[in-house]
Design a binder for these strands. Structure first.
Lengths: 204, 204
DNA sequence: GATGTAACTAACAACAATGTCAATAGAGCG
DNA sequence: CGCTCTATTGACATTGTTGTTAGTTACATC
C-alpha cells in the first residue's frame, strides 16, 4: 500500500481571507461567537489554525475582520436598497421592504447583537453613511419640503431602522408570542409611514 | 505578629445565589458574556469558583440562572408598567414611556442580544405572558372595540415592543448617527400610536 | 529546471476555564 | 460543649484556545 500524500492547497491571501470570513460568518450565525474559534474554522476549511493566525495576525484580528466584513455587507445592502428606491416608483411598502431586507440579509441582527455585547461600536461607523443616504433618499422620494423638516426625515429613518433591527433580532419569537405572521412587522411600519410624514402639517 | 486567619463568611444558599447573580449581571452588562466566568465572578465576591459550582451545578447552570433572573426582571417591569397604566389616566406618551423604561431597565437590550446569540429562546417564555398582558391593557385603555380588532391590538404591541427592543439595543449609536436626542425614539412611537389605532376605521 | 517567496503544516508551550474531591469551618441544635 | 450539616476552600486534573517556531511545499519567475 502506498502512502497517500495529502496534496496541500495554496491560496492567494485574498482567497484565503474570503474563504475564512465566509466560514467564520456561517459559524457565527449558526452557533454564536463562541463557536468561531481558530481551530473550528480551520478544521472546517481543512487547514491548521496556525494558518489563520498567519493571515489575520491573531484571533482578535479574525473577529475584527469578520465584523468589518459583515458591517460592510450591511452597508452595501442598504446602499443597494437606496439605489433601487431612487429608480423605480415604489410605494412606501416597497421602501420598507427594501430596508427590512437589507437588515435581514447576512445576519444583521446577530451582527448587531454581537457588536453591542462586545461594546465595540467603532465597527458600526460605515453604517452611518448608509443611514444618512437613506434619509436623503426618503427626502427626494417622499418628502414634501413644505411639510417635512430635515429633523423629521431623520426621525423617520430612526423609526424605520429601529423597527428593522428589532425585527431582525427578535422578530420571530416576538411575532410568535403575539400570533402575528411573518409580514406583520414591515406591514405595520409601512402602514404608519405616511401618517408619520404627514405629521408636519399639524405643527408638533 | 499574629497570623491573621481570614474569617470565612457563610451565606444561606439564597443569599449566595442573589449575590452571585447580581455580580454576574453587572459583569454581563459591562463586559459581555465572555467576562462572566466562574473565576471572575468568584474573585469579585471574594470566594472560590468551586463554590459557584456548588451553588449552580456548573458554569452553564450559572448562565441559565442569570438569563432566568434577567428575563424575570424584564417580565416584572412590564407587569408593573401595565399596572401603572391601568390605574392612572396616562396619555399615549405615558404608556410608551412605561414600556420603554421596562425594556431599558436591567439591561434588557443586552439580555436580548445574549439570548439571540445563544439561540436559546426558551428562556424568553416568561415574556410571553407579560406581552399579552400588555395587549389587554391597551385594549382596555385605548382600544375602541368598534374600530380596533384583536389582531390590530396585537400588532400595535408588536410595533411598540420592536421599537423598544431596538432602542434598548442600538438606540444610542443609531440616534447619534441621525442626530436625534435621547427622547426621540419614544416620542416617535408615541406620536404614531394614535394614528395606528385609528387605522381600523379605514378598513385595511 | 533552478530558485525564491510565502502559504502552510506539525509540534510544542502557555494559559484560562471548567470541573472533581477531600478537607475545613461556620452556624444551628441537642 | 459536642454534634451534624453543608457552605466553603485548596489543590489538582482536564480540556480547549491561543500563540510560537522551525520546517515543508506550492507556485510564480527567471
Amino acid at each position: 500500500m502506498s502512502i497517500e500524500r495529502v496534496r496541500r492547497r495554496r491560496r492567494t491571501p485574498e482567497e484565503a481571507r474570503l474563504e475564512v470570513l465566509a466560514c467564520a460568518r456561517a459559524r457565527l450565525l449558526a452557533g454564536g461567537p463562541d463557536s468561531v474559534t481558530l481551530k473550528a474554522v480551520a478544521d472546517d476549511l481543512g487547514m491548521t489554525h496556525a494558518n489563520l493566525i498567519h493571515h489575520f495576525g491573531s484571533a482578535e484580528g479574525l473577529q475584527s475582520a469578520l465584523m468589518g466584513s459583515m458591517v460592510a455587507d450591511l452597508s452595501n445592502a442598504l446602499d443597494a436598497a437606496i439605489a433601487r428606491l431612487r429608480t423605480d416608483e415604489g410605494a412606501p411598502l416597497e421602501l420598507i421592504n427594501a430596508v427590512f431586507d437589507a437588515f435581514a440579509e447576512g445576519g444583521a441582527g446577530k451582527l448587531a447583537a454581537w457588536i453591542v455585547l462586545k461594546g465595540d461600536l467603532t465597527h458600526l461607523e460605515p453604517v452611518r453613511a448608509a443611514v444618512n443616504g437613506l434619509v436623503e433618499a426618503i427626502r427626494d422620494k417622499l418628502g414634501d419640503p413644505l411639510t417635512a423638516s430635515p429633523k423629521q426625515l431623520s426621525s423617520a429613518v430612526l423609526f424605520i431602522a429601529l423597527s428593522a433591527f428589532g425585527e431582525a433580532l427578535i422578530g420571530p419569537p416576538l411575532r410568535d408570542m403575539l400570533d402575528q405572521d411573518e409580514e406583520a412587522s414591515r406591514q405595520v411600519v409601512a402602514g404608519l409611514l405616511p401618517y408619520f410624514l404627514l405629521k408636519a402639517e399639524r405643527g408638533e
